[in-house]
Design a protein around this nucleic acid. Structure first.
Length: 743
DNA sequence: GAGCACTGC
């Protein structure tokens, strides 16, 4: 085994005292001693410090594996796979034997495995069946500074495990900026520093704030291209539209210069974002021909998920697009925010992987210091928590408001998620898990989708529900290259089922199946068949190309991935003894099942393309990509999968529903003509829930509890108003829209 | 007639 890289400069510090530094060569014994003496150790290690591959091996040599497993979590699958492969090679064992990995579709471990790499989601799921993780002697949470939702939930759970088990060791990696915070959360844990092996990056600031950062980035890129020594350029933008504008403008300027007689060397302009078709994504890895250079214009995807070698120049606009959840509205918003200092440093670092580089920041140093957060708002504070609540409830965490989060999510968020789960029948009136809830937690799905599966099983259309859920669990299968937008739109419209986007997805899948799951069929109809080969993605890029191990990675993209998800969910359905039944061509039943999962996301017709949310009165619009858009067919009521604010409040994935279904399936929100007795009963139920939630809140600080109770009451009132305004159904539509012919 | 960062079970 190789020596611990750069151990000579390693230092040990305690969060509460002055850092001690060790100048002489430092054997791994040093860090092992720290781990031996402390239940939790924080490791600050830059990328390239070798911590991911070395730490597990040191723990193994120190004897931890004679007693149990060493686990190492990663936020991404590719990393879990490629790191496991590399460690197995370093140790000279077969992958999947002594060293293995586990990700959603693949458990590549055996009885002999003692070092196990996995995604953080896998370890979180494992806590469901073994609360104290008895099979593990040590867990390393790698890349924990990225603060994924799963990482944050694991923090709280593992902290409990540490308190329960004296024989358990936890090692958490952190960025320099928040090591003190991590250390204090884990009871003043010692901090161990391992310097990285990356090259220095010169950071240059803008002297004045930039009004138009697209323009500024284009100018900067051209200046580098015309003036500076060879080396590729990486520009960070917030989204697809900006990226396309930047690429267009760059190309235009180059053209202008050339037609003006200037001799400009070749520049390969390469956009990259997650929704870009795979074959175009792959182009960023092509080498620039001699005498020319690459300019990659990227979203956040190149910040952590993709690593391209050969970048010497980074241009950073200073902004990111983020999804933030508004619990009051039940709506996500995709908004542009200034990036955090940590993100800025991460982006700059991308210039120093191949050699010493330069980062041009298109904002002032003062803006960096005074206007940017030190680190990004963790996901747990800006996301819908229904899934987390369900998971914690099934772990018997009785008071969620007291759960030990490093950064607690807003209380309103938790209460709102509990309400959602109650509405779906997953929680009872006192906040306990129901049998429906216990079924739901078994599925790796968001609660509404799990409910759709259960409803499908109850209504005799679980096969159809299963397909729809699978299609909604993968990125859009519709392939839309920017230069063939109209053709691909036309191709997509051929699949439309006029009353439902959900059924459109079902239709696409069934046609694919009828055509033998063929790839050429997908290509012809502008559908995403599979995706990039794994070897093109992620950190393990080079290694994956050299070896053969990753060829086994069968995970695809698009329809192929939907098929894999479907198979996995079907397995779970079998273990849950849920029947697989098809309703044949009677797709109205499927819409009813959809209604039973989404009735709290109901909209009432207001005008062409416009609906109002039945509960909140919020306006919500049909998205132009919806099958229901602009067809002259205007159902009175629809339900939607999610509501996202971009330029307007847009409903994503919409289905027409019958008003009487809303009344039947969502009696807590809707009634056709309420009798006095049923109204009383409903109010009693609602009061009980509000009381239960307030009771939970009451255990928290007094002031917060008061606010929570007020929020619950407000919610009840809003619901009452909405109920009065909505849900007096018109008669059933006279004609059912024509179903499209199969292709 | 408009558009959406990135993960994960």
């Amino acid at each position: 085994m190789s020596a611990f890289p750069l151990a000579a400069a390693a230092s040990l510090s305690s969060s509460s005292s002055v850092a001690q530094s060790y100048g002489s060569a430092l054997p791994p014994a040093m860090i092992l001693a720290v781990i031996r003496e402390n239940p939790v150790t924080i490791v600050v290690g830059e990328t390239g410090s070798g911590k991911t591959t070395q730490m597990t091996q040191y723990l193994h040599e120190d004897g931890y594996t004679s007693l149990g497993l060493i686990g190492c979590t990663q936020p991404r699958r590719v990393a879990a796979m490629s790191v496991a492969k590399r460690v197995s090679e370093e140790m000279g064992v077969e992958l999947g034997q002594e060293v293995g990995y586990a990700i959603r579709f693949e458990d590549c471990t055996s009885d002999k495995t003692f070092i196990k790499y996995m995604t953080d989601g896998v370890l979180l799921r494992e806590t469901l069946s073994s609360e104290d993780l008895f099979q593990y002697k040590a867990v390393i949470m790698d890349e924990a500074h990225e603060r994924s939702l799963n990482t944050d939930v694991l923090f709280g759970i593992l902290k409990k495990v540490v308190a329960m088990r004296a024989d358990f060791k936890l090692i958490v990696t952190s960025a320099t900026l928040d090591s003190a915070k991590f250390a204090s959360f884990f009871g003043n844990a010692p901090v161990f520093n391992i310097p990285g092996r990356t090259f220095p990056v010169d950071v240059l600031w803008s002297r004045t704030p930039q009004e138009d950062y697209v323009e500024a980035a284009v100018k900067q890129a051209l200046a580098i291209h015309l003036r500076d020594p060879p080396g590729d350029i990486l520009i960070f933008m917030t989204g697809q539209e900006e990226i396309e504008a930047t690429c267009f403008s760059l190309a235009e300027r180059l053209d202008q210069m050339r037609s003006g007689g200037q001799d400009v060397p070749e520049l390969m302009i390469l956009p990259i974002y997650s929704q870009l078709p795979s074959d175009l994504q792959a182009k960023i890895f092509d080498k620039a021909p001699e005498g020319s250079r690459k300019c990659i214009v990227s979203t956040n995807i190149a910040e952590t998920s993709l690593t391209v070698d050969g970048i010497y120049y980074v241009i950073d606009t200073g902004y990111v697009k983020m999804k933030v959840y508004n619990p009051k509205m039940g709506m996500d918003a995709l908004q542009v925010f200034p990036e955090s200092q940590a993100a800025a440093n991460q982006r700059s670092g991308r210039a120093g992987r191949t050699g010493p580089g330069t980062a041009y920041r298109l904002y002032t140093e003062s803006a960096f210091k005074h206007e940017m957060l030190v680190s990004s708002v963790p996901e747990i504070q800006r996301t819908n928590l229904a899934n987390v609540v369900l998971l914690l409830k099934s772990l018997n965490v009785d008071n969620l408001l007291h759960f030990d989060f490093m950064d607690p999510p807003p209380q309103e968020n938790i209460l709102n998620s509990m309400h959602q789960l109650w509405v779906l029948g997953a929680l009872d009136n006192v906040g306990g898990l129901t049998s429906t809830g216990r079924h739901m937690v078994e599925f790796p799905l968001e609660p509404a989708l799990a409910k759709l599966l259960l409803a499908g099983a109850a209504m005799g259309c679980s096969a159809e529900a299963l397909t729809i859920v699978s299609m909604l669990s993968v990125p859009s299968v519709f392939f839309r290259p920017p230069d063939r937008a109209e053709e691909s739109d036309a191709a997509r419209e051929k699949f439309f089922v006029p009353e439902s986007d959900h059924l459109t997805l079902l239709h696409v899948y069934q046609q694919w199946k009828n055509n033998g799951y063929r790839g050429d069929w997908c290509a012809r109809h502008y559908l995403q068949g599979k995706g990039l080969k794994k070897a093109k993605e992620g950190k393990g890029l080079k290694k994956a190309k050299e070896g053969k191990g990753l060829k086994k990675a069968k995970e695809g993209k698009g329809l192929k991935k939907a098929k894999e998800v479907r198979a996995q969910l079907l397995d779970i359905m079998k273990t849950q003894r849920l029947p697989l039944t098809s309703c044949g061509s009677d797709w109205d039943v499927v819409r009813k099942a959809i209604c039973s999962a989404y009735f709290s996301n109901a909209g009432k017709f207001k005008g062409i393309g416009e609906y109002v949310n039945c509960r909140t009165g919020m306006p919500c619009h049909l998205h132009p990509s919806s099958a229901l858009y602009g067809l002259g067919y205007t159902p009175d009521y629809v339900v939607y999968h999610e509501l996202v604010f971009t330029s307007k409040e847009y409903m994503q994935c919409v289905s027409a529903v019958e008003p009487e279904w809303l009344a039947e399936l969502g009696p807590m929100f809707f009634s056709i003509k309420e009798s006095h007795s049923s109204r009383q009963e409903r109010r009693k139920k609602e009061a009980a829930t509000a009381a239960a939630m307030a009771a939970e809140a009451a255990q928290a600080e007094e002031a917060k509890a008061a606010a929570a109770a007020a929020a619950a009451a407000e919610e009840a009132e809003r619901r009452q108003k909405a109920r009065e305004a909505a849900a007096t159904p018109a008669g059933r539509r006279a004609t059912t829209p024509r179903r499209p012919l199969g292709l």
